[in-house]
Nucleic acid binder design. Structure first.
Lengths: 235, 235
DNA sequence: TAGATTGTTAATCGATTAACAATC
DNA sequence: TAGATTGTTAATCGATTAACAATC
């Protein structure tokens, strides 16, 4: 990723892009990949909508935030649209990340193909545990936390993946900010909030996700309740 | 969890509860725990709002979906409200889960304290890999995929955590549905969609989350851009 | 009682959907 | 040209915020 300037895209008529739209971009990315794998050349908003379980209107509206990627009467060219979405999502921008915390989760992440697939380069792993330091996981060396600042000076990173214990999240995030890191992928469960809108935080709260599932399991929708009752009276 | 009937709560004047509200409930759960740990007896919507970076109005609106948990002029009793939220989220309902896929992620999850903390009981792990079968991780035995149906017959589970390869997600989910499972915590990256609204799916798409972070790193907000430009001209 | 803070209604804001003219 | 499908505006829907009366 280019660290000296931040000019983007060129022609794009970027107005304000809502959070909701941003969250759908990776889904477009994934479904377009499926179409490419299937060898489809073109796709209409209607077809894509059926695949993705959203409306065609929403797709056209979303894509038009970034420019006219389609063609009237034809639809969208799959590989062209895919290329555009990749560009938007920074695939190929050479984004560099470090992982802080080499516990079960940190190690599972670095061993996965997730980062490579999306063009994110993991340059280092850090941990406090002396038993881990020096070991290599998924081709990445585990370093001491003392090396954090000197390493970042030599190898500027765009983001840090936080997979360390909750109580260390805030102090470590502060060190990372001081070391020039501007993005956090935060798995710690301790939410990070900054006023500065140059600092980007993506929270992954697995516990919250689990509980929302629990809620829906415990509180069936009215329709489901009704059906359940009918089954009950059948027996 | 009670498998024979699905009566809920009792007095609650449950109308429709939106997805947005459901997703905030686990946050209330977490922040109330913090207040309890600190020994606070009462909290006002304003105080809680400051902690959570949301508006007091939203908190009052949210909680009133489920009934009047507060008291005018006083605020909310922390432990009472916490108990109510726990009840809503099914903590203590004895929810039972199995994990399908004992790879890095499946093993990382079962070894974490996440499930225990939220009253979810992991009763089994399943995998196809003969080298893993019979081993115990986080106190849970890894079983063969052939045991899936017989095990579920003997030990009905409420949900399955899907941590297996993408291409197996759909066929395995179908087997689980046939075996009576109604909830999926889906880490596979292959989205599951069912018409039946008794079937609950919670998608965790780590790749999508990472990409949305990438997007925001590559596209600084207008404010941030302006500031960046000023810094640039200073040097 | 006076002060505080909820519960709840009304106003605002934003996101989704529908409709259709533009155009390939 | 006729048919298809986008780009875009307008209508609808839902969620958030503001306001204030109820009440502890």
């Amino acid at each position: 990723m280019n660290h000296s300037k931040n000019e983007i895209g060129a022609e794009e008529n970027r107005t304000y892009v809502s959070e909701a739209v941003i969250r759908r971009l990776p889904r477009y990315f994934r479904y377009l990949r499926i179409l490419m794998r299937e060898g489809k050349m073109r796709v209409s908003s209607g077809e894509l909508a059926d695949m993705m379980h959203i409306t065609a209107s929403q797709i056209r509206q979303d894509l038009n935030c970034f420019g006219g990627f389609g063609q009237q009467g034809y639809g969208y060219n799959v590989s062209y649209l895919y290329a555009k979405i990749c560009e938007l999502l920074g695939v190929g921008a050479g984004i560099r990340a470090i992982i802080v915390g080499a516990g079960d989760l940190g190690r599972a992440l670095v061993r996965s193909s997730m980062f490579a697939k999306r063009g994110v380069d993991i340059t280092a792993l850090f941990d406090v545990n002396p038993a881990l330091i020096g070991r290599t996981v998924g081709g990445v060396m585990i370093r001491s936390m003392e090396e954090l600042e000197p390493f970042c000076r030599e190898n500027p990173a765009d983001m840090a993946v936080l997979t360390l214990p909750k109580d260390q999240a805030e102090p470590v995030a502060d060190r990372l900010l001081a070391a020039g890191i501007r993005g956090f992928w935060n798995f710690t469960g301790k939410e990070l909030h900054y006023d500065d809108d140059e600092i980007v935080v993506e929270e992954i709260h697995l516990g919250d996700s689990l509980m929302s599932l629990n809620y829906r399991l415990c509180h069936p929708s009215k329709d489901a309740e009704k059906r359940q009752a009918e089954i009950g009276s059948d027996t």
